[in-house]
Structures are given as structure tokens and as C-alpha cells.
């Protein structure tokens, strides 16, 4: 479907926050953790770009696009009124466990799907805690929006905001292990693979369930090309686009 951009704002040093709504009809129901395949309509860029759903409000959907290559730079330069073609929603989302006290851990642009997840948990009567990380303060994304939905903890590698170090070095984790999970029974995480692996390890040590959202390189987005696979504990390669992008950390062979 074609989406018309309704808002475009530079956030952090490398990202753009886009809001858009369908040019015709209404937005299909989207779950937290699902993604869209956006088409960068520029010569030389062939494939769509898988972008996670950052937030949904009525028929308006939003994305955080980190500008890394030609395709994402094209998406980042879109202005209000511009049209972008999207295939959505794709993949499986996070589980929404209303009885849990969740910790949502995001790094870099991986924080994007956690806002919509937090909002959905909040609607189920759960107040989420976000732990958001970046290399420096300049790269943190939309902290105010997260603060409207839940408690926000921050870690930066240079200590320019929040605690100094990786998210996995944040004191919240020592409290988790010290007080026998401190009431937290589920961690949701999205970010760079090394960060998610470290979060998974900590969650396991604390006996807390953990769901990870993978961002493997993708072509089709619908389970046809088998390019985006990840290996699971049963020894099979599974499509991240259709069986993920959210997986129970326990099933992944990392």
C-alpha cells in the first residue's frame, strides 16, 4: 500500500522519525514487533528495506529510520506529503503478557519497536520499564516519548547520559539478579546482535524469560527467498521474516 508522510523529523544524529498514513483506506491491524518493507524509489536501490513498526495511532504508523545506505537515506529525506510504498504488517510480534513486569531493553535504532510494545503493554495495565542505550547522548532516540509510556533508564558508552557503559552493565541487571528477578519476569530486547546476545545471557542467569527481535538482512520479507534465516536449537534454519522477527531467546542457537 502507498503511505503518505504526515511528519518527518530528524531524531538523534543519524535517524529520522517518519509518520505516515495510507493514501487510501485504513491501516491494517499491526502488532508490536511486526515490520514493514518500505520501498526506496531511487535508481540503483533494488530491494525494499525492512523497518520495524515504531508506533501506531489510529491509521497513522510511524517508523524510526537510521540512515546508513542509499536506501535508508532516500527514506530519510522524505517530507510531509511524499508517498512511500509499504508491504505491511509482516512477521510475528512480541508476546504481550499482562501479568508480567517487563523490562524492555533497546540499543541504537533497535529501540524503535519497543515504544509500540510498551504502549500495548500499558494498555493491558502493565507499566513497562525501558532500558535504552546508545554510544553517546546524541544517538539516543525519542526519550520523551518513551517517558510518556513508562519508566526510562539510560546507558551511554561514554557516560554522556544515564549510566556509563553498555546496557548490560546497567545497575538494573545487578538488582535483577540480587533480588531474585525483582518482580521482573520478562525481558524484551531489540538492538545490535552482540547486545542482544549479552542481554539473553543475563536473562538466562536471572531466570527471566527473554524475547529478542532480530534484524537479519532480508530480501522478500514473506518467507519465499530464505535469505534472512537464523539457526535454531533444533538445527534448522528458520526465516526471520515469517517465523520472527521476534523469537524466544531460548530457541536460538547463538
Amino acid at each position: 500500500m502507498d503511505l503518505c508522510v504526515t511528519h518527518s523529523e530528524r531524531v538523534g544524529a543519524q535517524c529520522v522519525w517518519l509518520k505516515a498514513r495510507p493514501t487510501e483506506g485504513s491501516l491494517p491491524a499491526c502488532l508490536p514487533g511486526q515490520f514493514a518493507q518500505l520501498r526506496a524509489d531511487t535508481p540503483g536501490v533494488l530491494l525494499r528495506r525492512p523497518i520495524s513498526i515504531h508506533d501506531v495511532c489510529g491509521d497513522e504508523i510511524s517508523f524510526l529510520v537510521q540512515m546508513v545506505g542509499e536506501g535508508t537515506r532516500w527514506l530519510g529525506q522524505l517530507g510531509v506529503g511524499d508517498v512511500v510504498n509499504a508491504v505491511l504488517p509482516l512477521g510475528n510480534g512480541f508476546s504481550l503478557m499482562p501479568e508480567d513486569t517487563p523490562l524492555l531493553v533497546g540499543g541504537g535504532v533497535g529501540v524503535a519497536p519497543l515504544l509500540y510494545l510498551g504502549r500495548a503493554l500499558r494498555e493491558k495495565g502493565v507499566k513497562p520499564t525501558f532500558l535504552l542505550g546508545a554510544r553517546t547522548k546524541d544517538l539516543l532516540l525519542r526519550l520523551d516519548a518513551f517517558r510518556e509510556v513508562g519508566d526510562v533508564l539510560v546507558a551511554t558508552e561514554d557516560g554522556s547520559e544515564g549510566e556509563r557503559g553498555f546496557v548490560t552493565q546497567h545497575s538494573v541487571f545487578s538488582q535483577l539478579s540480587a533480588s531474585a528477578t525483582n518482580g521482573c519476569s520478562r525481558i524484551y530486547t531489540c538492538g545490535p546482535a552482540p547486545m542482544m546476545k549479552a542481554v539473553t545471557k543475563l536473562a538466562k542467569e536471572c531466570g527471566v524469560a527473554c524475547e529478542v527481535s532480530l534484524e537479519n538482512r532480508m530480501a522478500c520479507g514473506v518467507g519465499a527467498c530464505l535469505c534472512c534465516v537464523t539457526e535454531t536449537n533444533d538445527g534448522h534454519n528458520r526465516c526471520v521474516c515469517t517465523e520472527g522477527p521476534v523469537f524466544d531467546a531460548e530457541v536460538l542457537r547463538w
Binding site: N216, R217, A219, C228
Partner: peptide, 23 residues
């Protein structure tokens, strides 16, 4: 067949490479 390990795809100028390996 499980095919080849990830990464299996690279986008190139007006094209793409894949090495899925008949999964």
C-alpha cells in the same frame, strides 16, 4: 537440506547475490 549459513544475501548495484544453497 539446511542450505548455507547466514549471511546469504547481498544487495549489489541493480541486483542481488544469494547463496541460499537449496534449503
Amino acid at each position: 537440506r539446511e542450505g548455507n549459513p547466514y549471511p546469504r544475501m547481498a544487495e549489489t548495484a541493480s541486483g542481488m547475490l544469494n547463496c541460499v544453497g537449496l534449503q
